[in-house]
Simulated scan of single mutants.
Amino acid sequence: MVIAIDGEPQTTAWHDIYRDPESFDLTYAELGRRVRIPFELYLGLSPADARQIFYDRNVKGIDVAKNLAMSMDQRDLATRLAHLVGERLKIESDGRRMPFGTLVNVGKRQLTRTDKEVVTLSALRALIVTTVFGGKGVQYSATNVHEGDLPPDTDAGEVETVVVRLVSRLIEDRFPDFARRSAITAPAVMAGLGVLLHRATPWCDPVDAMSYETVEHLLADVRWEREPAYWDGVCASVGSTGRLNFSGGVKDSAGRVAGALLDPHSELGRKIRGLWR
């Protein structure tokens, strides 16, 4: 099998021409004589290496969508961890067992109603960086994470083990909410969840540390429905059409989400739990 890791428009165009050369005033004989297509063929290439080639070619060459390019950057620790979660976590959807990664959209910042995925890679990555760094992780939501950036007294191996385990457990426990594409899949909400998960990591400040069971308790009565009664003014706003819009950025809203999740008795904490009137 040959898979194109770049140049999709050109590849598609050549397929169209070869299927029906006459419509382009060509013949198969002319294609054989006149057309020479330069290409590079890699044998035995791993998916990670293919992603890195894509990133290097496009970021250092012609610009592509930043979200798509970052999804291919294997030097970015947060992206690698997001892909690991997608590969290792198995969920059941539509009666089939599959890797969670099949439901992660790597090319968009926001999903549309017709997309089959349940969350974007950028949202999953936001959950990763705040799980690693807590609230400070918001600054890494749009920039690379290197091993030298990791919290003191940790290493990449420990961070990978802990973060993949915590994030996978959270998604598996809450998968019905993910499958419904509820508010839990919004990037700012994912980032806020990561701030909460950070407190269950062994490198969290002991003053703030908590068990995963405490995390579960804090999330138990959160209302994930995409309704203004719960999320308007937290990380979403109601537009002129009356529709709730979650397009607010991670940097703008993750702190409010985290505060509401961590403090059930605060105004926003009561709001997202349906207790504020």
Rank of each mutant, 00 (worst) to 15 (best):
M98E: 15
V119R: 01
F39W: 04
L124E: 04
T114L: 09
T114G: 03
L124G: 01
A82L: 13
F39H: 12
T112Q: 10
L111N: 08
S71Y: 04
F54R: 06
R109H: 04
K108R: 14
M70W: 10
L41H: 04
M72A: 14
L77W: 03
N105I: 02
R113I: 06
I91V: 15
R109Y: 07
R109V: 15
I91Q: 05
L121C: 02
D63F: 05
E117W: 05
L103W: 07
I53P: 02
G61M: 09
A50S: 07
I91N: 07
M72F: 01
P99Q: 03
L81D: 02
P38F: 07
P47G: 06
G95F: 14
L121V: 02
Y42I: 05
Q74N: 13
K90T: 14
T120W: 07
K108N: 06
K90E: 11
H83Q: 09
N67A: 10
L103R: 13
I53W: 08
R96D: 05
Q110H: 14
L103P: 03
R80W: 08
L84F: 04
T79A: 06
I62V: 11
T102W: 13
G61L: 06
K116W: 06
P47T: 04
D94Y: 15
E117D: 14
P47V: 03
T112E: 09
A78N: 02
I91E: 02
T112S: 11
S122I: 15
Q110S: 14
N105W: 02
T102H: 13
A69D: 09
E92L: 09
T79E: 08
K60G: 13
S93D: 11
H83M: 07
R51E: 07
P38Y: 03
G44F: 12
R97T: 15
R88Q: 14
R97K: 12
L77C: 01
P38C: 04
G44K: 10
A50L: 02
K108C: 02
G101T: 12
D94P: 01
N58S: 01
A82Q: 07
H83E: 09
Q52V: 01
G61F: 08
N105T: 06
I91R: 08
R96N: 08
D94C: 11
E117R: 01
Q52A: 00
Q110R: 15
T112M: 05
I37Q: 04
R51P: 00
M70I: 12
M72N: 05
L103I: 09
A82R: 10
F100T: 12
R113S: 14
S71N: 06
N67P: 00
R57H: 01
L43Y: 08
I91A: 01
F39R: 11
D63Y: 04
R80F: 01
T120C: 10
R51Q: 10
A69N: 04
M70R: 15
S93H: 15
E87N: 05
I37P: 00
A78H: 01
L103Q: 10
